[in-house]
Amino acid sequence: MTIAPTVPHGKSERTDGARSGRLGALLRLRELPVTLALIALVVITTIANPLFLSPQGVKDLLLNATIVMILAVGQALVIITRNVDLSVGSILGLVAFGTGTLFANVPGIPIVVVFVAGMLLGAILGAINGILVTVAKVPALVITLGTLYIYRGINNSWAGGTQYFAGDRPEAFGSLSVDTVFGFPLITLIAVVVIAIVAIYLNGVRAGRDLYAIGSDPDAALLFGIPVSRRVLLAFLFNGVLAGLAGVLYASRFNSVGATTGTGLELAVVAAAVVGGVAISGGSGSVVGAAIGALLLTTITSALTAVRVDKFWQQAIVGMLILSAVIIDRIASVRTARKLRISEARDV
């Protein structure tokens, strides 16, 4: 997007715009480090083990990444508003178990209805988070830590020892994560469409842009006239919908759903978003970056297996990646701050 020429206080942008061409813009992309890391990882692994990029290998890779990708996209929406949602693993678990229950107890239920029901349940759970955060004005970290426990507890008491297996679900539903189009699994294509929609919303729609403003400075956003509470609530609600979708897809992808489905997923999801360049302090990052971050984190697992590195190293490497992402983010923001200071000093 371009800056309107009549902007009265936009002097600082002028110097930026004059100097940076397309290359500069590309180099400043927040998604760049994670994308480069992903490419490097895939290239090195493929050289070491050519089977890594075989059709089956790619399919497995994408199948493993899909669910975390959708969750990371939802999480990015929330993190951009300077909040966080730790309850996504529990929401996914509840919806996945709900999906299993629907298929087992309502014979012949159309798959579309199940998808809608799952996303609706996710929306309700996400909205509860959002309402608690915006109405009670309590930090999201605390509220969603609480709902993480509550939703998981509800799942536990609902499921008890019950588990639903793939056999209870129609074949067409399971084949969503088996069938491929041009080598891409169907559920991955669903995820890509969702990511594209959210990306367009965040980049091109006013309400989406507002999320960035809220994350950069909530007080300023409020003074500016942005309905902060409503937007934050919306971000939580969307995140719930996406977690619901991920829950339904989980039931399609994995054999069993029960009381503990999705436990401990929340930190992996936040990590994926952070690795993908979404700043934990809000206001910057993109959903595409978050999705690539999720892809990178799941690819590492497969890559380590492919090059026969001890699988026990995997989590340590994920930890180091998160730390490097945070450090890269810090360096970038320090540089931006310095550049802004210099250009503003010049303008005075």
Partner: peptide, 17 residues
């Protein structure tokens, strides 16, 4: 928050190693 999410994974990973 970000650093300790990272070291949460790192230290647990080192425990596995």
């Amino acid at each position: 928050l970000a650093v300790t999410i990272g070291t949460l994974a790192l230290y647990r990973g080192l425990a596995l190693v």
